[in-house]
Amino acid sequence: MRINRKRYLTQNVAKILIWMAALSTMGVMALIILQVLSEGIPVFSPRFFLDSPRSMGREGGIFSTIIGTIALTVVAIVVATPLGVGTAIFLGEYTREGRISRVIRFGIGCLAGVPSIIFGLFGFVFFVIYLNMGWSILSGGLALAAMILPTIICTAEEALKAIPYSFREVSYSLGGTKWETVTRAILPNAIPGIFTGIILGVCRSIEETAVVILTAGSSLIIPTSLFAPVRTMSVHFYILAREGISMEMAYGTGAALILLVLFVNIVANWRLNRYIRKRA
């Protein structure tokens, strides 16, 4: 009986430790979010969102950085989505497991692990200098597209895999070619999954700082073309905080950044559920 008591004591101690780990994870999350939001939200005002930064960001708002964030994200998504979904379709529907698919999968796995600063260096030397696009929305967007590509490929492939084999069989049996089967019987059903990947890509683009600072510059002027440099909210936040320009504005920008990412996630989930409900 003594031995059993000891064993159950161990079990209870372990249980307590595991609960503590879970609680502290939740606690840390709450601490970070609450700290930034509680200091940041009081800074919010219509002018904070609608005015562009003045005197390095000490005064004014963050309008131009919002524009910058949206512009870069749009370019990144527009470039990465067709590439990513196309690659996933090729892997999922057009090859059997073999040498080609293994090489591609390995390459994508490696690309997924490349640190963002490397994407930044690459974007800088390839898009900014070699292709002579300068610090611009285009350079930044393309570098971000490269960075989010593996995410979009992997989620799209998972989504395709989840479509039952029988759908393919039905489509072929009705005289569909491979491409017709993919576009009419498979893709429409895989859209929720593909969309999830795109949202992940959007969030990563919004958050990213290292890539953007090296490829899109940090201009505070509202861009007028794809070749204009921009500053995103993340970069603005980083510069404000690191160079100690204005803690108040930094908190405000940080809070806006967190809320934006949460907002994108929530809206995405909501739209997705509606789409799924509509088809079922």
């Binding site: 039952p164 029988s166 759908f167 069989e169 039905v170 489509s171 049996s173 009705l174 005289g175 569909g176 070619t177 017709e180 009419r184 019987a185 429409p188 059903n189 088809r279 079922a280």
Partner: peptide, 23 residues
Amino acid sequence: IVFDLPIALPMSIYENVAYGPRL
């Protein structure tokens, strides 16, 4: 061919039947 389990594609009744003719 008609399979052993009924496999309706997840679309409307009309679209299911129109699938082949559209192709």
